[in-house]
């Protein structure tokens, strides 16, 4: 029987590593819409990490802000300006 704390920490480490991949893709991606979506993946993973760190207050404020508000703002901005980053 594996100890429960090790399992939870393992999940947290896995999600942190995945968030690193998502961040790397978000920074290097040429298309700005895809960059916003990768950043949304990263936000979802961070929300789970906050949950596992026992901070429900932060999850309650982080999820509306970074999943509900940031993508809308950045997509509005992209719609009004440019769709692609210049090389």
């Amino acid at each position: 029987m594996v100890e429960a704390s090790v399992i939870v920490l393992g999940i947290m480490a896995l999600f942190a590593l995945s968030s690193t991949i998502a961040t790397y893709l978000a920074i290097t991606e040429r298309s700005l819409v895809k960059a916003v979506l990768y950043s949304a993946v990263q936000s979802t993973l961070y929300a789970l990490i906050y949950y596992l760190l026992m901070a429900p207050d932060i999850v309650l404020v982080y999820v509306p802000v970074s999943v509900g508000l940031y993508p809308a703002i950045i997509l509005m901005l992209i719609k009004k300006t440019e769709k692609e980053e210049e090389g």
Binding site: D57, L60, V61, V65, A72
Partner: peptide, 28 residues
């Protein structure tokens, strides 16, 4: 979330950020 903020997780900032998504959703 906001009005129960002193008993369960939540508070003014959380409730305000949550409530702000509703007009945005209507706008979109």
């Amino acid at each position: 979330i906001a009005l129960h903020g002193h008993l369960t997780p939540g508070g003014g900032f959380q409730g305000g950020a949550t409530a702000a998504v509703a007009p945005l959703l209507i706008l979109i």
